[in-house]
């Protein structure tokens, strides 16, 4: 694999810092009751997986994920303003304030959305990939899957179908160790989740270190190339959720475990690498952090200043109107 440029690495750094700061801000806004509702699942800790994986795609490729979707949306290029406005249920949000935190989407980025029914988006990924094959395109679908989602029937049906139809899907399990409160080993009879590829006659990708954006990028690149030319791949990224399952997660007593994972913080790892490779880079990193802080701050202002949806919005788009 060709060396990754300084510019690219800095862009990944920027995206990861953006996701971290955005999520930290969401957490604060939730506590201030500016983001409301019962669901808010933060991507903090997962940044290297989302950024490294999405970076492998072309604009014509497709991305789809579950409800832990803020980081993926930002990595795919969604403007933080429209993402933040959606968090606050504003009319200017990417889904007009009708989707909320779990349902970010942006059609013109081929970001097909976050989905709140565990594993419910997997068949959609297969269908989107079918369109690519049907029309003789070589676009691929990158589908993020929670470890918990691998035990849902949709997982089986969608992976098997992608196998028999040779669909260009990269099935990427984000294994963060838990589905809500249930550890992988308790929920999955085969806790090495990527091994399930065998059952679908599918290429088995690696279990990659999900804290290392370069490792994720390399593994997913290979998978994407394979999917483009041949068919589906299953791979797994090992990561950790820093903020528990979601805002409702009060049982978060895993401080020791959290500290261990934070030793291998994805942003820290990339930072160390950058400094090692380019000793003069530190001022740039600091500048990125300041720039991102402003972007996130602006997104909050934008969202706060935005109008709430109207009665017309409430009744619109139940059906296609033209």
């Amino acid at each position: 694999m060709a060396a990754i440029s300084r510019e690219t690495l800095l862009e990944w750094y920027r995206q990861m810092v953006l996701i971290r700061q955005f999520e930290t801000q969401c957490d604060i806004l939730y506590k201030e009751k500016k983001i409301t509702g019962v669901y808010l699942h933060l991507y903090s800790g997962h940044e290297a997986t989302g950024v490294g994986a999405v970076a492998t795609l072309r604009p014509t490729d497709h991305v789809i994920t579950a409800y832990r979707d803020h980081g993926i949306a930002l990595a795919r290029g969604m403007h933080p303003n429209v993402a933040m406005a959606e968090m606050m249920g504003k009319r200017t949000g990417c889904s007009g304030g009708k989707g909320g935190s779990m349902h970010l989407a942006q059609r013109d980025l081929n970001f097909w959305g976050g989905y709140a029914i565990v594993a419910g988006h997997l068949p959609l990924a297969a269908g989107i990939a079918l369109e690519s094959r049907y029309n003789g395109k070589d676009d691929v679908v990158l589908c993020f899957i929670g470890d918990g989602a691998t035990n849902n029937g949709y997982f089986h049906e969608a992976l098997n179908l992608s196998g028999v139809w040779d669909l260009p899907v990269v099935w990427l399990i984000e294994n963060n160790g838990y589905g809500m409160g249930t550890p992988v080993e308790v929920a999955s009879a085969q806790p090495e989740l990527v091994k399930r590829a065998i059952g679908y006659g599918m290429k088995e990708g690696p279990r990659v270190d999900g804290q290392d954006v370069i490792a994720v990028y390399e593994a997913v690149s290979e998978a994407v190339d394979y999917a483009r030319q041949h068919g589906p791949v299953l791979l797994e990224s090992l990561t950790y959720r820093y903020k528990g399952h979601g805002v409702s997660d009060r049982s978060y007593d895993k401080m020791a475990e959290l500290r261990d994972w934070q030793q291998r913080d994805p942003i820290l790892i990339l930072q160390r690498k950058l400094v090692e490779m380019f000793p003069d880079v530190e001022p740039e990193l600091a500048q990125i952090e300041r720039d991102v802080a402003k972007v996130v701050h602006d997104s909050v202002i934008f969202a706060e200043d935005s109008p709430v949806p109207t009665y017309e919005d409430l009744i619109r788009h139940v059906y296609v109107e033209d």
């Binding site: 068949p123 990924a125 369109e131 179908l161």
Partner: peptide, 27 residues
């Protein structure tokens, strides 16, 4: 290509049809 036999997988028959429709086909 246009008449597609599927496995006995109702969840993915419906779900993949949704995805294909979103992507511009008319399943």
């Amino acid at each position: 290509r246009r008449v597609r036999d599927t496995p006995i997988s109702e969840m993915v028959i419906a779900g993949a049809a949704v995805g294909a429709a979103m992507a511009g086909l008319r399943p």
